[in-house]
Simulated scan of single mutants.
Amino acid sequence: MSDATTIDIVAQLRHLSAEGSRAERRLAEIVLADIEYASKASIADLALRAGVSEPTVTRFCRSLACEGMRDFKFRLAQILAIGGLYLFPEPLEREEREARIVNSVYGGAVAALDRVRDSLDMPKINDAAEQMIAARQIMVYGSGGVSSMGAVELQNRLFRFGLSITAHTDGQLQRMTAAVSDRNTAVIAISSSGNAMSIVEATRIARQYGARTIAITDPVSALAREAELILPFTIPADNKVFKPTSGRYSLLMILDVLATVTAEMMGPGVLEGLRRIRTSLSALNMSEPGRPIGD
């Protein structure tokens, strides 16, 4: 059986429905109109519905880099399992669209924040803050959209306290910087799935050299098994495919709580750095007392 992950069969079907031969166009249109049916139909049924011969169906499957009808059906089933939501999204409600969108985003954000509030383990947050404060250097790793954003955001929060922190979202840099870590290094690894291999491997390497390893991740994951301290973070399934994931708010709340605890542990000394930043920004007409510092 061919590797179903190497070729986007849906894109190929759409191409054949527009550019293929008459038989290919008819078969592609039938499959795209009801992928679930096509994933279960026999070669005889599909040929009958399309008005073509069974050998034509076999040639059609092979033109899609499938070994035959069985392989073709297997790959369609995988498409449904992996990306069905994006092929058949829930119909959009046109009435009161603006209010619906606002309420959907707002409701998702509030639900995400509530989940974090109810699940935060403050002793572990305190432990993570203590380890970062004690470290000579902090490296924060993220991979993918939300996790990469979180890595850069944590760097943005903590450098202002005078902590030496660098965010890395490139897999090779994660491995290289992990390889030069030591007992004076704290590594913060962020991954909602916990299966981003560059981060899993970098965390393992850093721990090998004595670094303190903290993971913000799914507690039942490969990354959680590599890190010493786990701050639970998962993004639940969401079938609203047109809306960005609300998981971003969960991660931001964890990071803000962690940054606030870190600042309070460090005490009034952090205010000098904030004062300097405020002063330096005054040259950019950004000296209003209520304006966020550098945001």
Rank of each mutant, 00 (worst) to 15 (best):
residue 137 Q to R: 13
residue 151 A to P: 00
residue 145 G to F: 07
residue 133 I to S: 07
residue 142 G to A: 08
residue 137 Q to I: 07
residue 124 K to C: 07
residue 150 G to P: 06
residue 146 V to Y: 03
residue 161 F to C: 04
residue 156 N to D: 11
residue 125 I to V: 14
residue 132 M to I: 04
residue 125 I to G: 02
residue 160 R to N: 02
residue 115 R to N: 15
residue 121 D to Y: 08
residue 151 A to S: 11
residue 128 A to L: 03
residue 155 Q to V: 02
residue 115 R to S: 11
residue 157 R to D: 05
residue 126 N to L: 15
residue 142 G to C: 13
residue 113 L to I: 11
residue 131 Q to L: 13
residue 111 A to H: 08
residue 110 V to D: 07
residue 147 S to T: 03
residue 114 D to G: 14
residue 118 D to T: 06
residue 150 G to A: 02
residue 115 R to W: 06
residue 158 L to N: 03
residue 115 R to T: 12
residue 153 E to G: 01
residue 146 V to R: 04
residue 132 M to S: 00
residue 110 V to N: 06
residue 146 V to E: 04
residue 125 I to S: 07
residue 153 E to D: 15
residue 127 D to L: 14
residue 119 S to P: 02
residue 122 M to A: 05
residue 139 M to Q: 14
residue 141 Y to S: 12
residue 161 F to K: 02
residue 135 A to L: 02
residue 145 G to C: 02
residue 135 A to E: 00
residue 118 D to N: 15
residue 150 G to F: 02
residue 149 M to A: 13
residue 157 R to E: 10
residue 132 M to V: 08
residue 143 S to A: 15
residue 113 L to E: 14
residue 159 F to G: 01
residue 128 A to P: 09
residue 153 E to C: 04
residue 157 R to Q: 14
residue 156 N to L: 09
residue 130 E to Q: 04
residue 160 R to T: 12
residue 135 A to G: 04
residue 160 R to C: 09
residue 127 D to A: 13
residue 130 E to I: 03
residue 125 I to K: 01
residue 127 D to P: 01
residue 136 R to P: 01
residue 158 L to M: 03
residue 151 A to W: 06
residue 119 S to I: 06
residue 124 K to A: 14
residue 147 S to C: 10
residue 157 R to M: 07
residue 128 A to S: 06
residue 143 S to V: 11
residue 111 A to I: 00
residue 135 A to P: 01
residue 150 G to Y: 01
residue 131 Q to P: 04
residue 149 M to K: 13
residue 152 V to Q: 13
residue 130 E to G: 05
residue 138 I to N: 06
residue 139 M to H: 15
residue 114 D to A: 12
residue 134 A to R: 13
residue 140 V to K: 05
residue 153 E to A: 11
residue 152 V to G: 09
residue 140 V to M: 01
residue 112 A to Q: 04
residue 133 I to W: 01
residue 137 Q to M: 10
residue 152 V to C: 09
residue 122 M to R: 10
residue 132 M to D: 00
residue 152 V to M: 11
residue 151 A to C: 04
residue 144 G to T: 14
residue 116 V to I: 15
residue 126 N to M: 09
residue 129 A to Y: 01
residue 138 I to Y: 10
residue 115 R to Y: 11
residue 114 D to S: 10
residue 157 R to I: 04
residue 157 R to K: 15
residue 119 S to V: 03
